[in-house]
Amino acid sequence: MSGAACTAARDAAPELALGILDGQARAEVLLHLATCPHCQRYLDEMAAVADGVSCLAPELEPPADFARRIDSTIRGARRRSVRRWVTTVAVTAAAAAILSITVVRVIDFHPTSAHPVAAPALRSVAMVGSNGLQVGHVAVSSSSPASVVVNVDYNVPDGTYSLQVRQPSGTPRTVGTITITGGHGQWTGAAPLPPAQGVSLDLVAPSGSVVCQAAVNQAQATS
């Protein structure tokens, strides 16, 4: 922690708290906050002010039927979800039965070849966007290079973003692209994650701004 870093973080804290700080500046502040409880406390106070300011917009009565329409959507989706769940359970049960029969036959046919292979350990890391909201998660394996699954399911505008591994020192390295459609997106691939603290996997907009990031590093992934 240095005086200059604290000064820079505190200067940027109001914009970060309001959710309007973009790109590299936000990433740098977030990295500093992870190691500086004093600045984190200052940001928390700014966030309380930002929350209060948002609440100053007036309450207004929505058009008639507004709540009823949302209620119908939710209850309708829930009924469809229950039907899908029942179908999924039935299909999964059938698949499991078929698989178990197949496995038994394979083992019977090759009785000495069934060596158990340990799967790489997986760790789930939150992907965090502006205002500290969780927008998805990243699953990272302990293998090298790590197998990575990125799931975004909330609060990221539709579009194509690059996925970059960023270290506290050094230039970011692009490992792939992810397309968000209807607020959702997934990417699966391999990524070399340096065994150092402070490594993040960032979703970067074409403008270069960091939309959200997950604090991944190999040291944590193997713990």
Partner: peptide, 10 residues
């Protein structure tokens, strides 16, 4: 990470 109100307003 914050109140329900601030989450929803965000």
């Amino acid at each position: 990470r914050g109140t329900v109100v601030s989450w929803l307003l965000t």
